[in-house]
């Protein structure tokens, strides 16, 4: 709609409208590196919070037919450091600590005695690739029941034989597809895939699924700067799918 107005009025109007846009310039602070580091970190925290709220506790990730699973040889080995930390499989035990009624050392046989779940699910890497694999283990929730964990606690922390460490939210730990995994493709977990026990959660990215488990701790407090190997360097803590 065209209006006709005096030059000075047009200028005044334009100036007033221009000023209304000034708050947008605030986004310019992202151009200052020191400030932007903190802002984008806050952005990821906000995203993690939203992801936690959106997480559907009983919604199952897609599962696949045996024919869709990639051959075992093509399932990539991925580690941050060594692929075989030379775990003593004979004498291995899982240390359970924190907010649990029965802390202590648990043998693999005790975990294997719990109801077993086998699932063909997609393993998604933060890098963007994915593979469909066959996994077997017991839902983490079964084990938490066994050790008398307080599932009202907020987090599950794990420590690994290769010095990797992770923490996950309790809702994801209790998800029916979240496993303490001791089998792949119907065989005991091989050393490079995290023998004897790893996390396997089709609702989480690969880096959350720690291998070579040694310790599980139930807690409501995470140490700042010690929430996960990659997370401490900037990856999203929630890391959900």
């Amino acid at each position: 709609m065209i209006t006709r107005l005096e030059d000075k009025d047009l200028k005044r109007q334009s100036r007033r409208q221009l000023l209304k846009l000034a708050p947008v310039a605030a986004l310019g602070i992202f151009a200052i590196p020191k400030v932007s580091d903190r802002l984008v970190e806050a952005g990821v925290h906000f995203s993690d919070w939203a992801a936690g709220v959106l997480f559907r506790t009983q919604h199952r990730a897609q599962t696949f037919a045996d024919s869709e699973v990639v051959p075992f040889e093509k399932f990539p080995y991925n580690g941050y450091d060594v692929l075989d930390p030379e775990v003593d499989l004979e004498n291995w035990t899982l240390t359970v600590e924190g907010d649990v009624q029965r802390p202590g050392e648990y043998k693999l046989s005790q975990i294997q005695a719990l109801p077993k779940l086998m699932q063909n699910t997609r393993h998604v890497c933060v890098e963007g690739w994915d593979v469909i694999g066959a996994f077997g283990g017991t839902p983490i929730s079964n084990f938490l029941t066994l050790v008398g964990a307080n599932t009202g606690a907020r987090f599950l922390e794990v420590e690994c034989a290769d010095d990797y460490y992770e923490s996950i939210d309790m809702a994801s730990a209790l998800h029916p597809q979240s496993l303490l995994c001791y089998e792949m493709y119907g065989e005991p977990l091989d050393r490079k895939h995290g023998a004897p026990l790893r996390l396997q959660m089709p609702t989480k990215l690969g880096y959350k699924q720690a291998k070579y488990l040694e310790t599980i701790r139930v807690t409501s407090v995470l140490k700042p700067g010690k929430t996960g190997y990659w997370e401490d360097q900037g990856y999203s803590w929630f890391g959900g799918l």
């Binding site: 709609m1 065209i2 209006t3 006709r4 107005l5 005096e6 030059d7 047009l10 109007q13």
Partner: peptide
């Protein structure tokens, strides 16, 4: 005054 044609 000369009027300027303008559109918001």
């Amino acid at each position: 005054p000369v009027l300027v044609r303008a559109a918001y």
